[in-house]
């Protein structure tokens, strides 16, 4: 209760300061809108449904791409950790590609797939898959050999050991990997949406860019706010449960 109150007070204060700064007249309202103006934009965007549509389009791209990235990244990491040849080939490729800022995938995606949903998905997948794969690989390599030996004496072999021992034992690494993958995917999707207009659906990034085209600073601020909120919400919904589980079972884990 006390925590909620502190937080409330802080954000109320923040908006208050913002309001005062906007009222001070130091900056033109065309460049620095008052909180009320941003609020009005958000209300109108909700009323004419553009906000929900954009939110829907963006989250759909993100979720599908992210899911594909995780679902391919984890097995890829398991394979590179298990087989030396895979580590020497796929592993090295992944390491290289992970250093590539994922925005760099936007130009080739547009050339290959045109201004389509596929291009957007491709960018998100590329942002996710390598960091997930590398984290999984790293996690598997850090599993104490003792666990595997203990499991073997209890009759665990092959696939059973991988699924029941190695995978859960590397969970702290995998969770921090999928979290990092999420960060990359989210950033690259926003960049892609700002960079290109996809006619099949306007995402948040596109609304942000329209705001700039229209010189509508209230829209720019409003959408930025929504982007921040989506990021926070995803963190709470997607990762908090895992992190709580890790914390409960493992004790202190800095995942």
């Amino acid at each position: 209760m006390k925590r909620a109150f502190t937080a409330l007070l802080f954000f109320a204060g923040l908006i208050g300061v913002w309001h005062l700064l906007a009222m001070s007249g130091r900056w033109s309202p065309v460049l620095f809108p008052a909180p009320m103006r941003v609020w009005e934009y958000l209300v109108s965007a909700v009323e004419d449904r553009t906000l929900f549509e954009a939110l829907g389009v963006t989250t759909r791209r993100l979720m599908i791409g992210y899911l594909i990235g995780v679902v391919t990244g984890v097995p890829l990491g398991l394979i590179t950790a298990r087989f030396q040849w895979a580590s020497d080939t796929i592993g090295v490729t992944g390491l290289g590609l992970q250093t590539l800022p994922s925005v760099c995938w936007v130009p080739p995606a547009l050339l290959w797939f045109g201004q389509t949903e596929t291009a957007m998905l491709f960018v998100v997948v590329m942002g996710t898959v390598w960091s997930v794969a590398l984290a999984t690989d790293n996690g598997v390599r850090n599993v104490p050999p003792m666990y595997v030996r203990a499991a073997r004496t209890m009759g665990s072999r092959g696939m059973h050991t991988w699924i029941q021992v190695i995978l859960p034992a590397s969970l702290p690494f995998i969770v921090s990997g999928i979290k990092q993958g999420w960060a990359f995917a989210w950033r690259s999707l926003m960049a892609a949406e700002i960079y290109v207009t996809i006619l099949t659906g306007f995402g948040l990034g596109q609304l942000l860019n329209f705001g700039r085209d229209l010189n509508a600073i209230d829209q720019v601020f409003g959408i930025m706010l929504v982007i921040v909120l989506v990021g926070l919400l995803a963190d709470k919904i997607l990762f908090s449960p895992w992190e709580r589980f890790l914390h409960r079972r493992w004790g202190t884990v800095n995942a």
Binding site: M146, R149, A150, M154, W250
Partner: peptide, 27 residues
């Protein structure tokens, strides 16, 4: 390795992702 010979290791080697009964149930 076989279930007729069980090992208790120096460090417990218990699985942290399972609770007490989960660990005992593993074998």
């Amino acid at each position: 390795p076989g279930r007729d010979r069980m090992v208790m290791f120096q460090e417990s080697a218990l699985f942290p992702w399972l609770n007490v009964i989960g660990n005992v149930l593993f074998g």
